[in-house]
């Protein structure tokens, strides 16, 4: 089935493509041609990627603090000096309080909480979109959006507590791993203004 070879080369379009895809044998034939033609890729000399590429991959797949609503306790610890840690035995930090709900046009919902040291964004209703990442941004008045991290369906995102008034949290859809530009490149699908922090 030579059409499958043309498909792997990316040459099929329109009517020819529709005709090929209607054939039940097509997927298997594509796989065979994929194996045949992918040897072309093997003819390319390797090139060592710069170290920053792995650094970015590694940062993206790092495990996040996975226990919802206990994150505040850990974030309190992380920022504290030893003396403060000792005093935690006596007085634990106040638990975080709810300050906002962030909803999106895709009907996702996130709880936004604040503790003494952290801003915590917890997914209530959220699924990671296929082939995309959902990235969280902090926008201070008259300033460029600042990336806070990627939203994860299974973990709360905790960031250092920002301070100020008129702060906005926004979610945008980005390529996997987040915006390569440091600024939102995809559509902003939800935002919420925070009360004074």
């Amino acid at each position: 089935m030579v059409l499958a070879g043309e498909f792997v080369l990316g040459l099929l379009a329109g009517e020819e493509l529709a005709r090929a895809e209607a054939d039940a044998r097509f997927p298997a034939a594509v796989k065979v041609w994929q194996d045949r033609l992918m040897v072309l890729a093997e003819t390319v000399p390797p090139a060592t990627p710069p170290a920053r590429v792995w650094a970015k991959i590694s940062a993206t797949i790092s495990p996040r603090l996975a226990v919802r609503r206990r994150v505040w306790w850990l974030s309190g610890l992380a920022g504290a000096a030893i003396a403060a840690a000792v005093s935690l035995w006596l007085t634990q930090p106040a638990p975080p309080r709810d300050i906002a709900t962030l909803t999106t046009t895709t009907a996702w919902r996130f709880d936004v909480q604040v503790s003494a040291t952290a801003l915590i964004i917890s997914p209530e209703i959220f699924s990671v979109p296929a082939g995309k990442s959902a990235e969280l941004w902090l926008i201070a008045p008259h300033q460029a959006p600042k990336p806070l991290g990627l939203l994860d369906a299974h973990a709360a995102l905790a960031v250092a507590r920002p301070h100020g008034t008129g702060l906005v949290l926004a979610v945008s859809l980005e390529p996997p791993g987040g915006s390569p530009a440091g600024l939102p490149t995809g559509p902003v699908i939800g935002e919420v203004m925070l009360t004074k922090l």
């Binding site: 390319v44 060592t48 990627p49 920053r52 991959i57 390529p175 996997p176 390569p180």
Partner: peptide, 29 residues
């Protein structure tokens, strides 16, 4: 496999930031 796949990305995209971004996404995929 990173060097092999990066070579392939560069073959298609040239020696560019796009080739690095593509490689990064490849490993996330």
């Amino acid at each position: 496999t990173g060097a092999k796949l990066f070579g392939l990305c560069q073959r298609i995209l040239g020696e560019s930031a796009a080739a690095e971004d593509a490689l990064q996404e490849v490993f996330l995929i």
